[in-house]
Design a protein around this nucleic acid. Structure first.
Lengths: 264, 264
DNA sequence: CGACACCTTGAAGAGGTTCAAGAAATGTGG
DNA sequence: CCACATTTCTTGAACCTCTTCAAGGTGTCG
């Protein structure tokens, strides 16, 4: 009924990679692929750079970092020095209250940039945790500001990345503030699969890298509700669920759930 | 019991101003106060500029716009050209779904910058509505990028403003995702009064510029729940409420509600 | 002063949570 | 490679918070 085939995988070295390398930090000498040759180029970098600008941008990354599953890329309170572009792996970011509750504020995958929260007060205000073994490019923020100063399209690019994050969070606020459980989970699945598809994965099949509890935290629901809602979707033939493997059988039904609330 | 005294007001020409001017748009010639002399300077502008830089930043704003209560500064879908710094008045921003539901994503007051959502796709993704007659400084984004290019502290300032918005939204996600009605309203009141205090208003008394429904939308609650929660706080002697006039009698109680959920 | 928007309060109902138990998967150490 | 511990997931039943529906009160503005 549900073969966990890895046909889902398409872009090698991209998200959902399973086999980690063993190194912890890699100096520039061991980087084989420069930004200008990276297959995630279109996600991380500005477009329309000339040759000379490309060469300069290539100097931005001189360290990569590996983060083991469960490990932190940075913690709340930690000094902010760099942004991070994900090469491989999958992260969550979460904020916490004094009294221990925490809230997942996002899930990040290959090509996405993390750490923007740290700019305003020179320290991070959330934790970034790897949900699978991961590798990121370290982008020292001072170098980013220098490059932005020199290259107009780089400056524009940084502005767009930050604006995109603001718009994304607006969408999450809409979800948390006005949607019911089914709509939230439908929106979540559609969003995930769409981002994976952009990266060359299937439009209909995905492997969740997070627990029900983490999904619930992100969506403002309890893990039991997430589980029940998955089961309900499966009963209705909208999806097939086997643990963390999800196959979307009727994506129109999901879309209808998101755009038309309960009126039918 | 509750005199709606205007002792709340302190900074003339700042937020919570009640008497509007009549003009619609003002060209540079009629601007009496340059940024460098504006009393909101510390909120909008970078610090530590030298004289020459200050002069250049003064050229940024050459148009102001008045927006009548209920009017829109910009609409979802509208072409993005500028950011807006609020001089006087009070705004809400809201996003909408296709099916008509909408969600207030924030309330903005004097010295705060709006429009950041528009950068990523060159069009706005939310509506900005004036909740009282307002005046904003129009900051053409192309000029901002030019100035950022020339003045490092300006670039840094723009980054910080965007990062601050990301962090703010993280906080709202935490609120929407994991707090109960009382905690949400307590957090909301504390946040509002703190921002007003920064602008020279009372720490304990405020006039709400928005309806119960708008508060509810922002907090992910129905207007009846907001009203009931206000009444409950009033019964407990935590606040005094008379329509939109709120006096905080026990701000520690509010803080306790926010940081310690139900365990007491 | 009357129309309209906004606010308050009650009662019934629904959606999601909490508590609890058991099943399935995953990881670890022998 | 298997047994066991641990984590994760599923499902049921009772409960609770917030919503919905309804009615009346209050304030505001032309």
């Amino acid at each position: 009924m549900f073969e966990p085939s890895q046909a889902v995988q398409a872009v090698p070295g991209s998200a959902q990679t399973i086999h980690p390398a063993k190194v912890i930090a890699i100096s520039s000498s061991s980087i084989k692929v420069a930004c200008s040759n990276c297959n995630l180029r279109e996600l991380c970098m500005p477009v329309g750079l000339n040759k000379e600008e490309l060469a300069r941008v290539d100097t931005l990354v001189d360290v990569r970092r590996k983060v083991k599953k469960g490990g932190a890329l940075f913690h709340n309170g930690e000094k902010f020095t760099s942004l991070y572009a994900i090469r491989t792996g999958f992260f969550k970011t979460c904020v916490a209250t004094e009294d221990g509750r925490d809230q997942v504020t996002g899930f990040q995958m290959a090509g996405e940039v993390m750490g923007l929260d740290g700019i305003v007060n020179d320290q991070h205000t959330c934790d970034a945790i790897a949900l699978e073994d991961a590798e990121v490019c370290v982008l020292p923020f001072e170098r980013i500001e220098e490059l932005s100063h020199e290259i107009a399209s780089m400056q524009r690019h940084v502005h767009k990345i930050m604006s995109r994050e603001i718009v994304r969070e607006n969408g999450v606020m809409l979800l948390l503030g006005s949607m019911r459980a089914e709509e939230r989970l439908a929106a979540f699945l559609l969003n995930l699969v769409q981002r994976l598809h952009t990266r060359g994965f299937s439009q209909s099949e995905l492997v969740l890298r997070m627990t029900r509890e983490e999904i619930g935290s992100y969506l403002g629901l309890k893990l039991e509700t997430v589980s029940r809602t998955f089961s309900k979707f499966a009963d209705e033939g909208i999806i097939e669920v086997k643990q963390r493997h999800v196959r979307i059988l009727n994506s129109d039904a999901l879309r209808d759930l998101v755009s038309r609330p309960d009126c039918d």
